[in-house]
Design a protein around this nucleic acid. Structure first.
Lengths: 196, 196
DNA sequence: CCTACCGATCGGTAGG
DNA sequence: CCTACCGATCGGTAGG
């Protein structure tokens, strides 16, 4: 029984992984259950022995990613680093998530609007909450005079979207390695383009 | 006859505008011709008196946006501003395009992968070319010692994606006006988050 | 995990 | 610009 359960679970994980890749490549709506079944190596009807619906797959991907980000934010808020360091830590975490799990992160980022209720509202609320927590750290940095006087919500949006751009890079070339990429991004975002 | 032509053209423009809004809200594949027809106020079949296919709508939106960006880049390359100023000018142009035509820019940015060949390859090549031209300006700035020594391709991706984040902001609140937003973004990207 | 199949919906056309 | 309609494909189910 333990064997069956384990086999089923890993089969489901395999399906989710294939789905993440296809959802990223073609989009959620443009990926049919027949497409997905083919890439898994079974018939479309057989997918339903492992998942309840196409939307359940998207839910699994989106909320797994969201949970990782939320947990990390919990840890950072609990720490007592300086705000500017917290921002850099968050930045590095985001970049690493993007390079390590970029199929899932990309899908969670770009395809979540296809979630159904109540998951759609739930996810939307989690995003807003995450951004607010991020903005609070920036505001704390401004009030401690470590961060330039800017609109914190704008800064958060810039940071989050700037990082989401890695995927294009990730796919195009591999001429800069992951660590160089991370350092470059942190330098640009923290210190800006202009040479002092 | 001139009257008919003009009427037809503006009717088509109206359809494109409605389509841009719906493609942004729901995505290209999730928007049906029946959805679009309803928002235009006619039957689905009647759309085909103005457009040849659903994909033609997407092509019109994507290439119109691409042409605006390319023309602007032509002008900037021809100018003799300092590279760091050229970057700031590009940044401000992107931000203004995003706030002024954000339905079309968003669709062009996020839905272009649903273009059919040969438009898909054409668009893809235009994007790559645009990024290279942008990166060249940054490299010129680095060699003139105006811009920090960073990977120029990474910088371009960060900048372009950072700006695409405005749409979320644009939709959420209007507590910061367009000019403040632009200045905030330029400050963050050019001078960074950290206070000197 | 498969064969067989269903109702719904899609983009698009014919003909007026 | 509409009515009527088509072939294709979709997500999903029944039954084994």
């Amino acid at each position: 029984m333990a064997k069956t359960t384990k086999g089923k679970a890993s089969r489901k994980a395999f399906i989710l992984q294939k789905a993440a890749t296809m959802f990223r490549e073609k989009g959620f709506n443009a990926t049919s259950m027949r497409d997905l079944a083919e890439s898994v190596g079974i018939e479309a009807a057989s997918l339903y022995n492992h998942i309840k619906s196409k939307n359940e797959i998207l839910e699994a991907i989106c909320f797994e990613v969201a949970n990782r980000y939320n947990s990390n934010m919990d840890g950072i808020e609990a720490g007592n680093q300086k705000p500017i360091v917290k921002v850099e830590t968050l930045l590095r975490f985001h970049i690493r998530q993007m390079t390590a799990h970029y199929e899932e992160v990309y899908v969670s980022d770009r395809e979540w609007k296809h979630l159904n209720e109540p998951y759609l509202s739930n996810f939307h609320n989690q995003r807003r909450s995450y951004r607010k927590r991020f903005a609070s750290i920036i505001e704390e940095g401004i009030s401690r005079n470590e961060i330039r006087k800017i609109d914190s919500s704008t800064a958060v949006l810039i940071i989050l979207h700037a990082i989401s751009g890695i995927e294009s890079w990730h796919r195009s070339t591999a001429k800069v390695n992951a660590q160089e990429l991370e350092d470059n991004m942190v330098m640009i975002m923290i210190d800006g383009l202009r040479k002092q």
